[in-house]
Nucleic acid binder design. Structure first.
Length: 970
DNA sequence: GTCTTAACTTAGGAATACAATC
DNA sequence: GATTGTATTCCTAAGTTAAGAC
């Protein structure tokens, strides 16, 4: 025990000294400092100034990006100050931090946000992995905090006059400070956040129609673009660069040829670009004629930019709002945004809403699965021969099982859809499975406080085990995590325990940690029989609770288990990480089922919170999670009709977008010249969403990690370079996106866009919203007018699917072998993943496995050398004559060939593995790519569907397998 | 009209299962 | 058979968007 106090645990491979509590003290805590962001609360961004911005830092520079994934993820650090204020807060002031946190109560007001004065700032701590962390650190500094506003300020602003405020117009909100500010702009250095960096993303740049030039894109390299770029954008090549290129580049090149005109965008996925703006497209036609012309022409600076009427360059400098005042143009274009309005940034961001959703309808039927299905059992793709799918080895029992499953398939896609909002007519299920009750650890597994064992009450002990189980995780090196945990840990204590346990640093969870590690080992080492027993138990549970009957069909439930208690693991610098997620009881759970169905019985003597019969929603059970106060649901599996139908509708909406995309593009290009700042901002934002596949970017509360999307970009997330690496009008995006994954991209944009961005950024500092007159509601309302059902995220789906299709067209050689075709498919998929910035952290052990591979390669090379020498000798000997020697020489020659082939294969593997180390292909396949494109491609090219979709995917996309024939086009 | 909340989709990482190699 | 590497599944956080509440 005592020893316990200082134990070395392995943390990510390195060993660190653990303090008594078992917490490693390796110094990684950077976070706080840097990271703190103070967000104020308010949603609005208004940010008042007060917020401090935290940091300042430096920023920019970077190191290389290359590195890895982690790198990218920003998890941390950066924050900026944006203060979102809501006036509302005014009232409140609590700190969020206070632990408990606020959840969002409905009242809302309260809750949130308030708080915090910024002062506190929270630190969001660091990021997930250490690596990242490290990286982050660097970055962090730079980044800064975002403060969301402080209260005071906000109040004022918002309310009335916003404008008033100021002067700064923009500033509304978020303002922020500067921390970066400078840097950002200035520094342009590319990337590097912390050095790592990673994935670049894709962008594609469109091309302009008609071959106009879009400035950006340059194809220059596609090459560059892609591969590397994309990925590492930065060029560092190391990571992938070169390798990447191998494959990718070539293809890209090809593409280029084909599509010549289009340039692609740089980075992105290459193709992606392609997908957009086709050269053949007529220039935009659209409403105003002029616009189109613009393209190139436009681009000449002045000319276009200055519109006769309004903006001359001079003017340009002036924020639109101001300009207006001056001029007071009579007709303000519509609405004109009178000054008032226009000038005012949207402080308030609220949300508009709705759009008609498409409803779903239903169809169903049952039946079996498709042929393609039958064989299955693919598993690795190592394909060597052509289409061989291995149908083979399916045991009779398995076959039977498959058959049964097939019989249960509900062919809803052959039925008629229902257009009202009703989701089901009958629904019956068994209710959720509760987390197993807490089982105390053996008495010899103790918690130590200040070096001495301390017996804990059951509740406290359970809380301690939550932490103990994560002791070797990076989270435990984060101050925010530890602070939040300790706060909640104390809440679980008895008063007596509270008296004793006052200093987290004196807590030692090591023995508990060791116990759980041992348990885990035991589980792994269990005999086959033991494992089988467990498996069977699980299956039985799944059989009973894992399915429901809906409209007469048995459907699989997605998550039938309630989330077990534990510590909240937010991503990035989540201010709530480490808080205790409490156990859910029946009294917390609402059940939704058919009126005439049997209501699932709550566990022993308890009662559900509520039983309702709402057939306009799809969930079976719900509860409110205590850390963030959000509602969690139990819903159906993706293979269900309810999910599948919605998925189908999603892709149909994207296909509808394809029909009007040219017009929409023409329109937003035209709007880059609008007199109204809000229109220009909207048009530029939409351009980014379309071209770069950015997410909409909702406003976030301060009690969430500071991540952004298009509409919520702040000044520090964008750098403008008149020239960069030989390209003109380059916009460098560098921000933490969803899940705190870093988005880094250097994009060459059209001059008009560039100028608009300069305008938007005028007089703003880091922390201020780039698009201060835009938010997602406003944008989506606008989109709805352009097309029924159109929202910002449809562009992502559209461009992803479009890219897949165009890439498949380009990369598939009909006469190639199946493995070659698969390679083409994967490359197309990769282009989409890059476009969408789907990253993953470098797999554990990646480095080691690369080392092993390298060693193997080296060994192979040595073997080849030896073999070559021997071959030489044999050949010499053979010359002299003996038959035997000739035979030997032949044999050696063959062996040499074989070795060389093996070497090639290994080298390819190395390239491939490294290329993919930070790219996640699955996310796009599952969520963005119309499965019918893949199905059609398979059918057309004689590739078994199993090579493309694994079993889960096939189940999810069964509708597509049945629906699409080889001629399907997105 | 503004803000909150519900509902549902999208996302990466951990855990697990499985296959390839040693 | 053990080990290692890879693919799949599970889990749940983090987004988007529509609807509801004042």
């Amino acid at each position: 025990m005592t020893d316990a106090q200082n134990i070395h645990i392995q943390n990510g491979g390195r060993s660190e000294v653990v303090q008594s509590n078992g917490v490693t003290s390796n110094g990684h805590h950077h976070h706080h400092s840097s990271g703190s962001k103070h967000k104020s609360h308010s949603k609005d961004k208004h940010r008042d100034k007060d917020r401090e911005h935290k940091s300042s830092g430096s920023s920019s520079s970077s190191k290389d990006h290359k590195s890895s994934r982690d790198k990218d993820r920003h998890k941390s650090s950066s924050s900026s100050s944006k203060h979102r204020d809501k006036e509302r807060d005014s009232s409140s002031s609590s700190h969020r931090s206070s632990s408990s946190s606020s959840h969002k109560d409905k009242d809302g007001s309260s809750k949130h946000k308030s708080s915090s004065s910024s002062s506190s700032g929270h630190h969001k701590s660091s990021s997930k992995d250490k690596e990242r962390r490290d990286k982050d650190k660097d970055r962090s500094s730079s980044s800064s905090s975002r403060h969301k506003s402080s209260s005071s300020s906000r109040d004022k602003e918002r309310s009335s006059s916003h404008k008033s405020s100021s002067s700064s117009s923009s500033s509304k909100s978020k303002h922020s400070s500067s921390r970066h500010g400078g840097s950002s702009s200035t520094s342009k250095e590319p990337p590097s956040y912390d050095g790592v960096f990673v994935k670049p993303e894709p962008v594609s740049q469109p091309l302009i129609p008609g071959g106009l030039i879009e400035p950006f894109h340059v194809p220059e390299e596609f090459n560059s673009y892609n591969p590397n770029t994309a990925i590492n954008c930065n060029g560092n090549g190391n990571d992938g660069g070169a390798n990447y290129k191998n494959g990718y580049e070539d293809s890209i090149v090809e593409i280029k040829k084909e599509e010549s005109f289009n340039n692609l965008s740089q980075a992105s996925s290459c193709d992606y670009s392609l997908s957009q703006f086709r050269s053949d497209e007529p220039p935009f036609e659209v409403k105003h004629e002029q616009s189109y012309a613009e393209d190139d022409s436009t681009m000449n600076d002045n000319e276009q930019y200055e519109e006769p009427e309004e903006m001359d360059e001079d003017e340009e400098d002036v924020p639109l709002a101001m300009r207006k005042r001056k001029q007071e143009a009579p007709d303000q274009a519509h609405g004109g945004m009178d000054d008032d309005d226009d000038d005012i940034p949207l402080l308030a961001r609220k949300k508009p809403k709705k759009e008609s959703k498409e409803k779903k309808s239903k169809k169903r039927v049952k039946e079996e699965a498709d042929d393609m299905y039958a064989n299955v059992k693919p598993k690795k793709i190592k394909i060597k021969k052509e289409a061989e799918v291995k149908t083979e080895a399916v045991s009779p029992a398995k076959r039977q099982k498959i058959k049964e499953e097939e019989e249960e398939v509900w062919r809803w896609w052959e039925e008629e859809k229902r257009a009202d909002g009703v989701k089901w007519s009958t629904l019956e299920h068994k209710g959720p499975v509760f987390a197993p009750p807490y089982e105390r650890v053996p008495r010899n597994v103790r918690f130590y406080y200040d070096g001495k064992p301390l017996e804990l009450s059951e509740e406290t002990e359970e809380a301690a085990t939550f932490y103990a189980k994560m002791l070797n995780h990076d989270y435990c090196t984060k101050e925010v995590f530890n602070n939040n945990f300790f706060k909640d840990f104390r809440k679980s204590m008895t008063s007596k325990e509270k008296e004793i346990i006052k200093d987290f640093r004196k807590c030692n969870f090591q023995e508990m940690f060791n116990f759980f590690q041992a348990e885990s080992e035991k589980r792994k080492a269990a005999t086959k029989e033991e494992k089988l027993v467990k498996k069977n138990e699980n299956e039985a549970l799944m059989k009973e609770y894992g399915f429901c009957m809906i409209d007469g069909h048995k459907e699989k439930i997605g998550n039938f288990r309630l989330e077990p208690p534990g510590l909240f693991r937010g991503r990035g610098e989540h201010p709530k990480m480490g808080m205790i997620k409490r156990r859910i009881h029946a009294s917390d759970v609402s059940i939704n089922c058919g009126k005439d169905s049997k209501v699932p019985p709550p566990p022993g003597g308890s009662r559900w919170k509520e039983v309702r019969h709402d057939n306009t929603v799809t969930w079976l059970a719900s509860w409110i999670e205590n850390v963030q106060g959000q509602v969690k649901y139990i819903m159906l599996n993706p293979s269900s009709k309810l999910k599948g139908e919605k998925d189908h509708i999603k892709y149909e909406t994207a296909r509808r977008l394809d029909k009007v995309i040219d017009k929409i593009r023409a329109t937003y290009r035209d709007e880059w010249k609008s007199k109204e700042m809000r229109v220009r901002q909207r048009a530029v934002a939409l351009y980014f969403i379309d071209k770069l596949a950015l997410r909409a970017g909702n406003e976030k509360d301060e009690d969430q990690a500071d991540t952004v999307g298009c509409c919520s970009l702040r000044v520090e997330h964008v750098q403008l370079h008149k020239e960069l690496n030989g390209k003109e009008n380059v916009v460098v995006f560098d921000f933490p996106g969803k899940d705190s994954i870093r988005y880094y991209n250097e994009v060459e944009v059209e001059k008009r866009v560039f100028k608009n961005l300069e305008l938007f950024m005028e007089h703003k500092k880091d922390g201020d919203d780039l698009f201060d007159r835009l938010n997602t509601q406003v944008l989506n309302e606008h989109l709805k007018e352009l097309m029924d059902g159109l929202t910002a995220k449809v562009f992502r789906t559209y461009n992803a699917s479009k890219t897949l299709q165009s890439q498949l067209d380009l990369l598939t050689d009909p006469s190639a072998t199946v493995p070659e075709k698969l390679l083409a498919y994967n490359r197309a998929n990769r282009a989409v993943a890059i476009l969408c910035n789907h990253q993953r952290s470098v797999p554990k052990g990646h480095e080691k496995s690369m080392e092993n591979l390298k060693e193997k390669i080296k060994a192979k090379r040595d073997a080849i050398d030896d073999c070559e020498a021997e071959y030489h000798d044999f050949k010499k000997a053979a010359k002299r004559g003996s038959v035997k020697e000739k035979v030997n020489a032949d044999k050696k020659g063959k062996q040499l060939e074989r070795l060389k082939d093996q070497l090639k294969k290994l080298e390819l593997q190395e390239t491939d593995r490294d290329e993919n180390k930070t790219i996640a292909l699955g996310t796009s396949k599952l969520n963005y790519l119309d499965p019918r494109i893949s199905v059609a491609w398979c059918k057309k090219n004689g590739v078994p569907i199993e090579k493309i979709f694994n079993k889960t995917q096939r189940t999810k996309f069964l509708w597509a397998v049945h629906m699409a024939d080889e001629d399907y086009r997105f």
